[in-house]
Design a protein around this nucleic acid. Sequence first.
DNA 1: AAGTGGTGTCATCTA
DNA 2: TCTAGATGACACCAC
Length: 584
Amino acid sequence: MGWESHLTAASADIDLIDILWRQDIDLGAGREVFDYSHRQKEQDVEKELRDGGEQDTWAGEGAEALARNLLVDGETGESFPAQFPADISSITEAVPSESEPPALQNNLLSPLLTGTESPFDLEQQWQDLMSIMEMQAMEVNTSASEILYSAPPGDPLSTNYSLAPNTPINQNVSLHQASLGGCSQDFLLFSPEVESLPVASSSTLLPLAPSNSTSLNSTFGSTNLTGLFFPPQLNGTANDTAGPELPDPLGGLLDEAMLDEISLMDLAIEEGFNPVQASQLEEEFDSDSGLSLDSSHSPSSLSSSEGSSSSSSSSSSSSSSASSSASSSFSEEGAVGYSSDSETLDLEEAEGAVGYQPEYSKFCRMSYQDPAQLSCLPYLEHVGHNHTYNMAPSALDSADLPPPSALKKGSKEKQADFLDKQMSRDEHRARAMKIPFTNDKIINLPVEEFNELLSKYQLSEAQLSLIRDIRRRGKNKMAAQNCRKRKLDTILNLERDVEDLQRDKARLLREKVEFLRSLRQMKQKVQSLYQEVFGRLRDENGRPYSPSQYALQYAGDGSVLLIPRTMADQQARRQERKPKDRRK
DNA sequence: AAGTGGTGTCATCTA
DNA sequence: TCTAGATGACACCAC
């Protein structure tokens, strides 16, 4: 690796500062949006305002959870440990992007700021997000945090951003800008175009050689990036410009990933998505192949058993014992169960009045009117409804309304009366019309056999009409039952799909968080390397270079160049225009 | 008494 | 054209 230094003195960074400052304005982000202390104050106020409000749960528990470094589910109010990168600024200013033009990186953030959400909502989400991340930053990067937030808590100017204290130039720097600020120096470090720069000649770029390795650590802390990004010299000279700090030389690589994460977190906040909850859900699903659908969510308790049995052999087997007797008795009558796919169920067979599969419906009898069978299936106790409300008066015979004297008859007569009551109205009609065969045959015989049966008897027109109606109604009754079962099945499957999708979502979110975490670690390493390299540089007089006047630039061939910041500014501006032109 | 879920039936459409 | 199945809508019943 060839190290060269450039001795040309850098002029003021006003242009660069203006560019960067305009970026924030263009993005529509006010300074206060990213003002840490300002946000904290707003949070406190809003917390009070929301007490007792609609978002009571969210606000109260959210604040509490934040104090415990938790994320809060916006919908359910549940809290979960924040796994996101500790510091958004650390993300955005971290590893530089080798492939992404700086301006493009800036633009990547704009969707967040120009979304459909109101500025207040966006800001609120930012506040929540930043609070979490900044609290984690205190844990993860203690040394950096001490420097970044070393100013008194009440000082909004120095505590806002990753700045050295008492640097007025930094007042206008937002956390958001911390990521955007990486533009020019991203380029400085990694842009291959640097080799084509006129100043990058052998006369101006001097080889960089470690001159004083022992003083390295004393000069730059491994995690103290403040001096790197916000050099004291700059702070001293640029006060009057009131512009932003110099761009983050390492920022930008994570911008896109961070955007994704932010949008994810937005999603989490908006939709109340709880990764932990979902992960627990996943664990439940993983540990238990069966559905964990709450039966209360199902249209009926029966449907829940149907749903679980459809995907779990255990539930099916468990239900088979309870329904074995019933199903046997029903199958005796040829009753069949609705089966949409592989979901033929004992329960449904027990329920048995209908057959969804046509081959099973042949020769089947609608036997659920049998009270003895119904007694085996408490959940079918309503199946035997006798809907006689539309019954034509002519079709109703005396069997429909047994006289009170019937109560005094013998037990056999009582049973007969009871069975009469359990008869469907079509059965009553058939009896009234003296139809010579059972309704089961009328309904379930195939057409050919049915016609054959009709031909065997001399039937009146009224009888034939009734038989046709009975057959039509009977078939339609089964069809309606199948249709309803299918409908329930569809609902259950949709619920299952929702659960699956939520589980996938949770898994993807966890993976993303892990990915971002590793990226953050890489970023910190690159930051340390940058500091180390820059701190070793010495001019011909043996003095260190000023970070405000020089920056390291990473060339495409792997070499690292030391160039003046004015060049870096020009390059940054050039890089900034390119993506915009390209977009046109 | 009103609401809800289950059921049967009709009308209609489709294959 | 007939038949059967599917389904929305309605009414009734039990709870």
